[in-house]
Computed example of a mutant assay.
Amino acid sequence: MTETRDIELTILMPCLNEAETLETCVRKAKGFLDRTGISGEVVVADNGSTDGSQAIATGLGARVVPASRRGYGAALLAGIDQAHGTYTIMGDADDSYDFTRLEPFVERLRTGSDLVMGNRFAGGIEPGAMPPLHKYLGNPVLSFIGQLFFRPGIGDFHCGLRGFNTERIRALSLKTTGMEFASEMVVRSSLARYRIDEVPTTLKKDGRSRPPHLRSWHDGWRHLRFLLLFAPRWLFVYPGLFAFLLGALTVGILSFGGVRIGQIGFDVTTMVYASALCILGFQALLFFWLTKLYATQEGFLPTSERYRRIMSRWTTERGLLAGTVLFLLGVVLGVVQVSQWAALGFGQQDAVDVIRVAIPSSLGIILGFQTIMMSFFSGVLTVPRQDMEPEAVIES
């Protein structure tokens, strides 16, 4: 019997009621190991099958690892945790991926790749193997967004056939238990600056008579949501900065008087909407700051050197000071306006002139107050705890 320490490759299959196709997949995987002479094992991560899948796998010599928690990611996490191989290649147990042609994955892993993704679009997709919605919209759009946000250098972000260095992936402490696990593996590997390669692979129509577990719109949204949450700059910073600067610039210009461009005039009504845009943008930036603080403290996002430099200069007190200054500027503008009104005997004023001053005043008060509250909240998030890593503790 092969010693555990001598196993080079684990072929891992998540399984939930795959009795129709599991035997074929296990036989192909074991045939690949026999043909190539690679020291390996076949592991079936069972997610609570009720159709006898476990007995089929055991009867064919595969090792069954039970995953008590339901979900695609939960099954794979259980399998990865129990894998004995230096490398792991994972693939669905529905006979849609070819377990007899895994040499390109093994070759890349042996040369130092941390993650090797299959590319179904480069290798070939059999007619009927992928719904048109996935082939022409879902996968291309999500792959484009994933490449734009994280730059992993791959063209098929959600291919289910992929190989990886087992210990390197364990070190990422992946957490998601659903279909978004496929995205998390690529995103976290990219953020950790792992070496990610891609090889062509094929996809054929699965051999099941029942519908797949995948739910197109529901799971597509979960993937997109995950990509956005792990890219806070795209979710918060870029739209927030654009809205804040555009709103603040517009309010600043119109504070000195109306502006006409061609036949269109911009005045206090525009100021009202511009101030709302400015506030929304500022809130987005504050949410980015708090999200980044929480995500880095809890280990969801890595901390870059630039982020650590910024945080070394940031204190709750400095945030409170900045917020107080903004708040007081708004109050001073309001006091000046009331003083001018008092000089007129609290009589009737020109509405346009009043609004032109009231908007910057209220904007300063609102932004200042939000900054003060954010500073207190960030102070709560950065209170040193016993379970924190030393580098995660930020003085506040």
Score class of each variant (00 low, 15 high):
residue 246 L to A: 15
residue 95 D to G: 02
residue 249 L to D: 02
residue 141 V to F: 14
residue 183 S to Q: 04
residue 104 P to Q: 05
residue 258 G to I: 03
residue 29 A to P: 12
residue 270 T to Q: 06
residue 307 Y to H: 10
residue 165 N to M: 04
residue 262 G to Q: 07
residue 339 S to C: 03
residue 314 W to R: 12
residue 176 T to M: 07
residue 391 E to G: 00
residue 220 G to E: 09
residue 110 R to E: 09
residue 98 D to Y: 06
residue 319 G to I: 05
residue 65 V to A: 00
residue 232 P to L: 05
residue 82 Q to H: 13
residue 35 R to Y: 10
residue 7 I to Y: 06
residue 330 G to K: 06
residue 180 E to F: 00
residue 285 L to I: 08
residue 217 W to I: 15
residue 165 N to R: 14
residue 370 Q to T: 02
residue 74 A to S: 15
residue 323 G to N: 04
residue 161 L to I: 13
residue 350 D to R: 09
residue 395 E to N: 10
residue 83 A to N: 03
residue 95 D to Q: 03
residue 240 G to C: 05
residue 201 T to D: 11
residue 284 A to E: 01
residue 103 E to N: 13
residue 289 W to N: 03
residue 79 G to F: 07
residue 78 A to K: 04
residue 161 L to H: 04
residue 47 N to E: 11
residue 20 E to K: 08
residue 377 F to K: 03
residue 97 Y to A: 08
residue 77 L to D: 06
residue 374 M to L: 07
residue 161 L to A: 01
residue 74 A to K: 05
residue 141 V to E: 02
residue 106 V to T: 09
residue 188 R to T: 10
residue 393 V to T: 11
residue 372 I to V: 14
residue 72 Y to N: 09
residue 195 R to T: 15
residue 10 T to Y: 10
residue 375 S to T: 00
residue 373 M to Q: 02
residue 108 R to D: 11
residue 88 T to D: 03
residue 163 G to E: 09
residue 290 L to S: 09
residue 200 P to N: 11
residue 289 W to K: 01
residue 61 G to L: 05
residue 221 W to K: 13
residue 236 F to L: 03
residue 73 G to S: 10
residue 136 Y to G: 11
residue 5 R to D: 12
residue 322 A to C: 05
residue 360 P to V: 07
residue 344 L to E: 12
residue 25 C to Y: 05
residue 289 W to R: 03
residue 13 M to C: 07
residue 78 A to W: 06
residue 270 T to D: 12
residue 327 F to P: 00
residue 350 D to A: 12
residue 271 M to R: 04
residue 88 T to K: 02
residue 347 G to E: 11
residue 310 I to K: 08
residue 63 R to A: 03
residue 125 I to R: 06
residue 164 F to P: 04
residue 292 K to E: 13
residue 88 T to P: 01
residue 195 R to W: 04
residue 340 Q to C: 01
residue 254 L to W: 08
residue 322 A to V: 09
residue 249 L to H: 02
residue 168 R to K: 15
residue 85 G to A: 04
residue 27 R to V: 14
residue 344 L to D: 09
residue 99 F to G: 01
residue 253 I to Y: 02
residue 165 N to W: 07
residue 78 A to P: 07
residue 18 E to C: 00
